[in-house]
Computed example of a mutant assay.
Amino acid sequence: MSAFLGPLEADGRLPPSQQTRVAAFLVSAHGALARQYALALPARFDAAWQTELNAQLYRESEIVSLLTRATAWTPDLALGPMAVSWEMAWLPEPMEAIADDARAQAIHLATLAHAVHAGIRPAALLPTEARADDPFVAALRRIEFESGRLLQAQILFLKGPDLLPYRDAVSAALERRHREVRKLWREMLASLGIHIRE
């Protein structure tokens, strides 16, 4: 087991098989967030936090677009069952403690996005000798940079005064989401022979 992607190809690029599987996972996670943000957006904004949903929708869409173009895709027969398990994991979970459906959906999105942006560190997998001009390498670094920015918005929403009455339910949902996302990420990397420390 290795802690990094590779070994690198003769031209210094990451193997297309690894690019494909890592990108497929990231496209699944960020694509799910983009779809759910699009569904959560109301026709008219009634609260300030809803404007952030709009901004996050476009950032998630940009991440998906970047990955689809920067990845050297190759056929991967194992992706079918893996992708099904990923897509099932991103589905909203009921929050019985919160009667307001719109608020519950926003909390689900924020906890999932927080887990994805905080729990997945794709650039940390890059070996130091990876080519900086490799589009996939540049994409992973860009995604990690954007994740740090997006994380701030989720923290502000989840710790905001509007959710104070639901603090226990929000904390439990956040912890559960982090466990799920970390587990799926580790399993996908293990399938490539990569081990990441907790």
Rank of each mutant, 00 (worst) to 15 (best):
S65V: 01
L53Y: 05
W90Y: 13
A34H: 15
R131C: 05
I194S: 06
I120W: 03
Y166K: 03
R44E: 14
E52G: 11
E198A: 12
T51K: 03
Q50L: 02
R141L: 02
A102D: 11
R149L: 02
H195V: 11
L163S: 10
L174Q: 14
Q36K: 12
S147K: 11
K183A: 08
L91W: 02
A99L: 12
S65C: 08
V84W: 07
Q154L: 00
P7H: 06
F25T: 08
S171T: 08
S191R: 10
R21N: 03
T68K: 13
M82T: 14
A70K: 05
H117F: 09
F145E: 13
G193M: 01
E9F: 04
W90L: 13
P7W: 02
A55L: 14
R149P: 00
L109C: 05
D162G: 12
A106V: 02
Y58P: 00
A78C: 01
Q105Y: 00
T111W: 02
L156E: 12
Y37D: 10
E129Q: 14
E146K: 10
A169Q: 05
F4N: 12
E129S: 09
A138L: 04
P42F: 10
L174M: 08
H117A: 04
L26Q: 07
S171M: 10
R121A: 09
K183H: 09
A138G: 01
L53Q: 12
V181F: 03
L91Q: 15
S61Q: 15
D162Y: 06
D162H: 12
Y166M: 04
Y58H: 15
M88T: 11
L140N: 05
S65L: 12
Q56E: 14
P122D: 04
R69D: 05
G119S: 03
S65Y: 05
V116T: 08
Q18M: 04
A104S: 13
A83S: 14
G160H: 06
D101L: 15
L77C: 03
I63Y: 00
L151A: 08
A153N: 13
E96M: 08
R69T: 08
L112R: 15
F136Q: 07
P135M: 06
L158K: 11
L156P: 00
A106P: 10
A106C: 07
A97G: 06
L39T: 11
D134S: 06
L189T: 00
A24M: 10
A3R: 13
L189V: 04
R13A: 10
D46A: 14
H178I: 08
W90V: 12
E93K: 15
P165R: 09
W73D: 03
D46N: 13
R197S: 10
D101Y: 07
M82S: 14
S191G: 04
V64F: 07
E146R: 13
G31R: 13
E60M: 10
L77P: 11
A139I: 04
A24N: 09
A113F: 00
A29V: 11
A43F: 08
R197F: 10
D100C: 11
P165G: 04
A23Q: 08
R186V: 07
E52M: 12
K159N: 15
H114I: 00
G160P: 05
E129W: 02
P122L: 02
Y37Q: 12
E60Y: 08
L8T: 05
T20K: 01
L156F: 06
I196D: 03
A110R: 11
R59P: 00
S17P: 00
L77N: 11
P135C: 04
D11F: 05
